[in-house]
């Protein structure tokens, strides 16, 4: 029995179903919780690919930090305000304005990309290997030092910007 393959199909099913619920679920809180499941599923894909550190970061940053911020935003705001459309699912999927055009675009994109991947010679290249945390850390502080520092400044700027934006008018 090919257990990685079994794990892959299990993860694929869970992740894709959760992603589907994220984009169609009426209740925004449910969509956010399904998004957390999808993030954990993607972390499973990283683990299957041998990228253990990325799987760890995925759970820490996405399933931890991003989900916390998302849920706090949803719960801090008036729930009725962020609920969005109230049409039933079938009507939304079939209505020309809200469902059919995005669905056709997304399906066309998926078909195009899948056809391109299926026909590509890229799949026959030489294989890489899993990268350890030490190697990643060394590269981050040597080859990728400048992007690393720029990213830290970006995060600082984003933090300051988020604080300024989410403060009320009269509280400056």
């Amino acid at each position: 029995m090919n257990w990685p393959l079994v794990a892959f199909f299990f993860l694929a099913g869970v992740t894709l179903y959760s992603a589907y619920r994220v984009v169609v679920d009426e209740t925004i809180t449910h969509a956010a919780l399904y998004l957390a499941i999808a993030f954990v599923g993607v972390a499973g894909f990283y683990a299957l690919l041998g990228a253990d550190f990325l799987a760890f970061v995925q759970v820490l940053v996405y399933a931890g930090a991003v989900m916390t911020v998302l849920l706090f935003t949803i719960m801090l705001s008036d729930i009725r305000e962020v609920r969005g459309l109230k049409l039933p699912l079938f009507r939304r999927l079939t209505s020309p304005r809200w469902g059919a055009v995005p669905a056709a675009l997304a399906a066309g994109l998926a078909a195009l990309l899948l056809a391109a991947f299926a026909g590509s010679a890229l799949l026959a290249g030489p294989e890489g290997r899993p990268v350890g945390l030490g190697e990643l850390a060394r590269a981050l502080l040597t080859t990728y030092l400048v992007p690393f520092e720029v990213a830290s400044v970006l995060l600082l700027a984003a933090m300051v910007g988020a604080i300024v934006l989410s403060k009320g008018e009269g509280e400056r």
Partner: peptide
């Protein structure tokens, strides 16, 4: 996954 994201972002 990407196509689902596109669908959601548009819809």
């Amino acid at each position: 996954l990407f196509s689902l994201g596109v669908f959601g972002a548009l819809r």
